[in-house]
Design a protein around this nucleic acid. Structure first.
Lengths: 142, 142
DNA sequence: TGAATACCTGAGCAACTGCTCAGATGTTTC
DNA sequence: GAAACATCTGAGCAGTTGCTCAGGTATTCA
């Protein structure tokens, strides 16, 4: 409560205050080695941003629908039972991260998954949750 | 503003009000076919939950560190410059989703990635962001 | 040109999230 | 048992998110 908490958008990727971080409790050598092996901060942010985009039920459903082929905003909205505005907002986010790609045709705009990479990532996640045992009570932990 | 918006934790997976959703603008046949091909709602939630867990810079860094081998909470905290409390909270979330696994040894608790699946998913995402062109101005869209 | 259609966008609100703080729990050592 | 250590947990706060609403832009057609 003393120090003003740093804004969350800028993750504390920089090492903590020097006076607190030179000694490691358990395995100093290994921890020091790890320091140099960690993913670079900008990449961390990009990676988290991409996963977070996939981490919402509405966007999962949008991507799932698009995994079967391109669709216009209108049909996406009807298919998923959402307002076109809500769909448009989400597509903008996915577009910004290059997860989907728009194609205008007259007054319609058709959206499709941006590339094969996305589909692979999506399906990998799907396989994980389908093969992971039911997660008994921990499911709603927290 | 008329209807009280449903809680966000229960995504509108159910089809929308019947009177609004029987007719599709563009390709009714295709949309109807898609209806049956979409991922089941509980799976959608699980999938989104898993991706969301990966969708935070702190958790990305935790998983990245653990991808090199198991570490105790204390070293994780020092390595990433976070409080042990913050690390513990995040690990609980990851534990609940079976993304990491604890192993107690005396008063220490060592955490490791739960299985190979996680590492595969993590690296797939990493490859994606590393191969995706710089995302010019859309990066911070919205 | 004007109306209709399909989509986009900013503002604003309720719900959610990640952190800190304070204190609890479990384990080892004296 | 008591003290020290490593970790866990609940409450609470500020920042973020996903939606709706209201109105905007782009395209087609009469």
């Amino acid at each position: 409560m003393s120090a003003p908490r740093p804004a969350r958008a800028v993750p504390a990727v920089a090492p903590a205050a020097p006076e607190a971080c030179d000694v490691f409790h358990i395995d100093p050598a290994r921890v020091s080695r790890l320091r140099g092996a960690l993913i670079a901060p900008p990449t961390v942010v990009d990676l988290a941003e991409t996963f977070r985009a996939l981490g919402d039920p509405t966007r999962v459903r949008l991507l799932d629908a698009l995994s079967h082929g391109e669709l216009c905003v209108c049909d996406l909205a009807r298919l998923l039972g959402l307002s076109e505005s809500a769909v448009s907002h989400q597509l903008r986010l996915l577009r910004g991260l290059r997860l989907v790609r728009p194609r205008r045709d007259g007054r319609m705009v058709y959206y499709a998954l941006d590339d094969r990479h996305i589909l692979t990532l999506f399906r990998q996640g799907l396989r994980h949750v389908q093969e992971t045992p039911a997660r008994p009570a921990a499911r709603r932990a927290r």
